[in-house]
């Protein structure tokens, strides 16, 4: 039987609707993310026309990438090192926190989650500036360490430099850590939310003690949250500008500061573009490793 024109129109509308709903997001991504990013490709292959302007001419020069990697390889390495350290320490803090919120939070759970998110409500720039006074030479943190006679020990561990906290890797990593903590806690709480308490009861009933209940049930079932947390924490941290600028010295600059410097101070747009693309490639690689690894794979998602 041929479909009536009305039914045909309805079917067309059904096919059409999802695209309409997708359109704003897709246009946004296309216009403000993908196109500018693609625009960087020819720029990175160009040469500056003069030393005093941003005008460039396309030469297909691949050597820029080699120069950039040679010159800024250590900074890239340092950036990912800082980001990874901050994420690792962050997870050590976030995991028990998320566990406590999920399994011991009870009716306080929404409030506790709110408290975790609360710091993110202030601008991260303001937070970084606040940290400079906290970690400064006359700040409370150093005063506490001095009163506990720990300055020398911390110097020895390399956490302080000449008795100072500002302009050390420690300060930068602490700054990155505070930025990403909510992004580590929230996915973990969400993942643990899906661990029904009856699974823990079942494990206890099957003669598993507290440690085995954790390693065999809670840990494997919270791993998707862990994977999401690592992605959400590591990637923004690797590209952070503000924390190294305020809390670190010249030796703690990260790759985003370098890109900023290349473009706006040295007026080396092609190099800045090349370094940006290298950073993007590395981040994409990290995401792919996470997604294809044990992270989300093999876990039944409801």
């Amino acid at each position: 039987m041929p479909a009536s024109p009305r039914a045909e129109a309805a079917a067309r509308a059904r096919r059409f609707w999802p695209w309409l709903l997708l359109a704003p997001g897709l246009l946004w991504l296309l216009g403000l993310y993908l196109l500018p990013l693609l625009g960087l490709v020819p720029l990175s292959l160009s040469e500056p026309l003069s030393r005093f302007g941003l005008e460039t001419v396309f030469r297909g020069r691949l050597a820029t990438y080699l120069e950039v990697l040679q010159a800024y390889g250590p900074i890239l390495w340092r950036s990912f090192g800082y980001a990874a350290s901050a994420t690792a320490i962050g997870l050590l803090l976030a995991y028990p926190l998320a566990f406590a919120i999920r399994f011991r939070g009870g009716r306080w759970q929404p409030l506790l989650i709110g408290l975790v998110v609360l710091p993110s409500l202030t601008s991260y720039l303001v937070r970084a500036i606040a940290w400079t006074s906290l970690l400064g030479d006359n700040g409370p943190v150093l005063a506490l360490l001095q009163s506990l006679d720990l300055t020398a020990a911390f110097n020895g561990l390399g956490l302080l430099r000449d008795g100072r906290l500002l302009n050390t890797p420690t300060a930068v990593i602490l700054g990155l850590l505070t930025n990403q903590l909510p992004f580590l806690v929230l996915p973990l709480v969400l993942a643990m939310e899906r661990i029904q308490p009856c699974l823990l009861e079942a494990a206890a009933d099957l003669h598993a003690g507290a440690w085995r209940r954790f390693t065999q049930v809670v840990w494997p079932l919270s791993r998707p949250g862990l994977a999401a947390g690592i992605l959400l924490g590591l990637i923004p941290a690797a590209g952070d500008v503000v924390n190294p600028l305020f809390l670190g010295g010249p030796n703690e600059r990260m790759v985003a500061n370098t890109i900023d410097n290349l473009l706006l101070v040295q007026l080396q747009a092609p190099r800045a573009a090349a370094l940006t693309l290298v950073l993007m490639a590395l981040v994409t690689l990290a995401v792919l490793v996470q997604l294809r690894g044990r992270g989300l794979d093999g876990l039944p998602l409801p």
Partner: peptide, 17 residues
């Protein structure tokens, strides 16, 4: 976990992973 009895839960509580 120290009791010599085992339970079949109403919703089974099988480990999904």
């Amino acid at each position: 976990h120290r009791r010599p009895v085992n339970m079949v839960f109403q919703n089974y509580a099988l480990f999904p992973h």
